[in-house]
């Protein structure tokens, strides 16, 4: 059958779409770690070193409570998802600009570029999570039945990361101001998220502020089911989950509405 005239862009087959995403992820990962001696070992170094510093500063000097868990494990359990989020957003924001030469020269679904950035960080996440398992064994901490909820929180983490990355990468095409804002924002965000401290250490009058942060529910929840073997605080999870899903849908719609202008302004 001869192709018919249309004013809409050609759609990739689902296989082609997934494979292109995989290829771009591979390109990212290879580009990041090729010609480096430790390779993906660097993916572990970042949360591990931060864990060491946090342990020294917050636990030793600051007497920070960790709800009874070993502090290094307590911090590491939150740092792994945190760095997945922050590294994804960090490089994802500039990704469309970095890929300018293909965005302005060939047509393909534009969201593949930020998606590949987030996807490539899954490898780092996997490596760092592997070390977490070793740390659990070292500290003799087991996983209870609540551990079955881990995939739910990881899915929320992924959706939130995708939503923020789609949004920042798209707006950054039009206003490069987004990138510095994101860089500064991520640094502050780490301290405003219960990573180095438990939510229970936050005074009651500030608690509402922490609940505005969707990552609070994800990180607190992950720690509850994985480290403390107890049920998460359901209201906190509910708030996080609903705001994450709303943000993701809004970001995806915004991205698809604006992507036809990317090549003009990039």
């Amino acid at each position: 059958m001869p192709p018919t005239l249309t004013d809409r862009p050609a759609r990739l087959s689902r296989t082609a779409y997934v494979e292109l995403l995989m290829n771009l992820m591979r390109r990212e990962i290879k580009g990041r770690y090729s010609q480096s001696f430790f390779g993906a070992g660097w993916a572990i170094a970042q949360p591990l070193a931060t864990m060491a510093v946090f342990t020294l500063v917050f636990a030793r000097l600051g007497q920070m409570p960790s709800d009874g868990a070993p502090y290094p494990l307590f911090a590491y359990a939150a740092l792994v998802p945190w760095f997945f989020f922050s590294n994804s957003v960090n490089t994802g924001t500039m990704s469309l600009v970095t890929y300018r030469n293909i965005v302005t020269k060939t047509y393909f679904p534009r969201e593949i570029v930020p998606l590949a950035q987030v996807g490539s960080r899954l490898v780092d996440f996997g490596a760092a999570a592997g070390l977490y398992v070793l740390l659990m064994i070292y500290y003799g901490v087991g996983v209870g039945p609540w551990g079955a909820l881990v995939p739910v929180f990881l899915l929320l983490l992924l959706l939130f990361t995708l939503g923020v990355t789609l949004l920042t990468s798209a707006v950054n095409v039009f206003y490069r101001d987004v990138n510095p804002v994101v860089q500064i924002g991520l640094q502050l965000w780490l301290y405003l998220t219960p990573v180095a401290y438990p939510l229970s250490a936050v005074p009651a009058e500030y608690r509402w502020f922490f609940l505005l942060n969707p990552l609070t529910g994800v990180i607190e929840g992950l720690r509850a089911v994985l480290l403390f073997g107890r049920a998460p605080e359901w209201p906190v999870v509910a708030i996080s989950a609903s705001s994450i899903i709303t943000l993701f849908v809004a970001a995806a719609v915004f991205f698809k509405k604006t992507d036809k202008y990317f090549a003009d302004v990039i």
Binding site: A10, L12, S13, T15, A16, E19, L20, N23, L24, R26, R27, K30, G31, S34, Q35, N101, I102, K105, T106, F108
Partner: peptide
């Protein structure tokens, strides 16, 4: 335009053709 210098020619063929919408 879609090629990455760190990847081999073979990998770039798959990457580049994928950008044109081809499956593996």
């Amino acid at each position: 335009a879609g090629f990455h210098p760190e990847l081999t020619g073979r990998e770039n063929v798959y990457l580049g053709a994928g950008l044109f919408g081809l499956t593996r």
